[in-house]
Nucleic acid binder design. Structure first.
Lengths: 352, 352
DNA sequence: TAGAGTTGCGAAAACGTTTTCGTGTTAAGA
DNA sequence: TCTTAACACGAAAACGTTTTCGCAACTCTA
């Protein structure tokens, strides 16, 4: 019922000025021992805490980080959030989350909602629709207004900001090389259409690995899935496409999937067709999820370390925020960093 | 570089007063057509947006909801967030997320960080440690300060607030009845220690179902897992316990698991012991996750509808927030609602 | 005892809004 | 020509802080 107590109320109650109360609570030496004790006791009694909003207004900083991600029901993204929240909290920041649902409009609106003073900076991963439309004005505008951005995973080079990524090419290459080493002769890739940058890069890694080992890539072994099929409603269409892949390439003995769902679908279809894992078919997936660890057989993965990505992104952002205070808008050209988080191969039952 | 533009700057630039600018932008009839147009054009040019923090301070409301959950890397919780974010956004609110990591202290600290003006109300699910310690003072204090709370899933009755829960007893009962109907004679339950309320309630549902069908519950068929084993590090200890369960009860033909991980572990162990699913053993899990849908065999579940829970919780909270405005702290006793979201059985391959 | 220094506190500005209440100017009515 | 009303705008307060500055009332020192 009783609203939170304010400096003004304490001042009135104790018959001193607001300034005195403020100083007393911050242990200023200007205030006599006596009054200081009196005020602090009173404040403690009424459980006084400074109003955050007022502080934000006064200091022109909110100590809050805005996160914009495509979706949250996704192991990778929630791991990243965990990482961000961890260091944010440790460094005295809060975290406010906006979901773009892969939609350009929602991304723009969400950013506008937050950019009006609610937060000090953004950490984000770009929506697929935005990547398709290649319209990045909302990012540049935000940056021009002096609000720093850190991008992770899905990034675009033309935006001047810090970035945290995994080396998709290298990771994919490592996966495919593992398959080759394990004796696979006909390795298929299940990937996304090229406008999804991670899909494109992982496909590139696949091709490079083949090339390095003097294996000719066959286009029939490259299955590029239309993105709409990621949703659970279209799971059977996805299965169909994968089944066709196997049917028309009976000699496939290795699959590299760019995400967990594709991998698990490949395994399901392969089994239906009578293939034994890992004897007839070996599978490696790019991922950081629970599916590969707990499904049967468990799936060998290139893991992305989502939490590490989140931690790094948060540190980059907060470092920049707190550096600004000293640098005080000097005219030195900003220099941005792109941090690559190493992936690593976790072997499980889907490979020999 | 250039900070966001303010009313004051526009006023100065156009040589009018701040009030005039404010009124012009809000289309007040006090302002002449001429100046209004001029000001609006200027504001549009410089992309003026009112500073949210200033508005929050003035209006004494932030249009922001605080979410405190035990963890975010969890399908159920991220689904709930999705639901909250959906209606929050639709109704003009933002969402700020704090993670308790199941720790009492982090829960308290997170709530204190947010309760100092940063948000208008909480939506939360209680940390396990808090449930164990049964110390709820931070909730009551928050409520006493006039900040409404909506609890979901893990709730305690003694806190006066709106609640959104699933009928755990009923859902569990339905699951077990399904197993019975399907011919299972020796149904085991894999659940958590009793201090986790959902574990306790689901165990209760299990017992009720057995009783209703005149089946004697056998304590050897009730496996209560210590909570620490949920983490991925202890996955083998979990497997051991489950294996012991099967070894010492060779006649088990049905398993009801209170979460996905237990179910998937049960299946894994059962297979290792040579049991066929669903012929020798049928499994039903309480869950809303991706594991049950995509693992092989896919798992029949009692689904919790996390998103619906989130939506309902957000609507309850926002309704209360916006009702307060009119009621204006009248002394009518607050009356709180407990909404039960219906679970339902989704049949998959792990049952006949 | 006059001047200087110390001590303890308050007034006011600032952060960026919105809104109430004036107030000066002009137009209309008597 | 005088009063009144309409019109267009500005001053100021308020939201809750922090901080700079000023100023009394002391306490020393010479």
């Amino acid at each position: 019922m009783k609203r939170k107590i304010t400096l003004k109320q304490i001042a009135k109650e104790l018959d001193v000025s607001i300034s005195t109360v403020s100083k007393a609570l911050r242990n200023s030496i200007e205030i006599s021992e006596d009054t200081r004790q009196k005020i602090q006791a009173f404040a403690k009694l009424y459980n006084y805490r400074p109003n955050n909003i007022a502080l934000s207004l006064k200091n022109r900083k909110t100590k809050t980080i805005g996160i914009i991600i495509p979706e949250i029901v996704h192991h990778f993204f929630s791991k990243v959030i965990t990482g961000i929240e961890l260091v944010a909290n440790k460094r005295g920041y809060n975290v406010i989350v906006g979901l773009s649902n892969e939609s350009f409009d929602k991304e723009v609106i969400n950013m506008q909602m937050l950019a009006n003073g609610s937060i000090d900076g953004f950490i984000l991963s770009i929506a697929k629709e935005t990547l398709q439309q290649q319209d990045y004005h909302h990012f540049t505008e935000t940056i021009n207004q002096g609000m720093p951005i850190v991008m992770f995973d899905r990034v675009v080079n033309e935006i001047p900001c810090d970035k945290v990524i995994v080396d998709d090419v290298k990771g994919a290459k490592e996966a495919v090389e593992k398959l080759i080493t394990n004796g696979c002769k006909n390795i298929a890739i299940i990937t996304t259409k090229d406008y999804v940058s991670v899909g494109r890069l992982r496909t590139q890694g696949y091709l490079e690995a083949l090339e390095d080992h003097k294996i000719n890539a066959k286009s029939s072994l490259i299955l590029k899935i239309e993105d709409k099929l990621m949703s659970d409603d279209h799971i059977d269409k996805l299965e169909n496409e994968v089944e066709q892949l196997f049917e028309s390439n009976k000699d496939i003995d290795g699959v590299f999937a760019v995400n967990e769902l594709y991998a698990v679908t490949a395994i399901k279809v392969a089994r239906k067709l009578g293939l034994k894992i890992p004897n007839d078919l070996q599978v490696i997936s790019f991922s950081d999820g629970v599916l590969s660890r707990h499904s049967t057989p468990s799936i060998t993965t290139i893991s992305q370390h989502g939490q590490a990505i989140g931690e790094k992104a948060a540190n980059l952002l907060i470092n920049r925020l707190e550096a600004e205070e000293v640098d005080y808008d000097d005219e030195t050209e900003e220099v941005y960093e792109t941090v690559v988080i190493e992936t690593n191969l976790t072997e499980r039952e889907s490979t020999k």
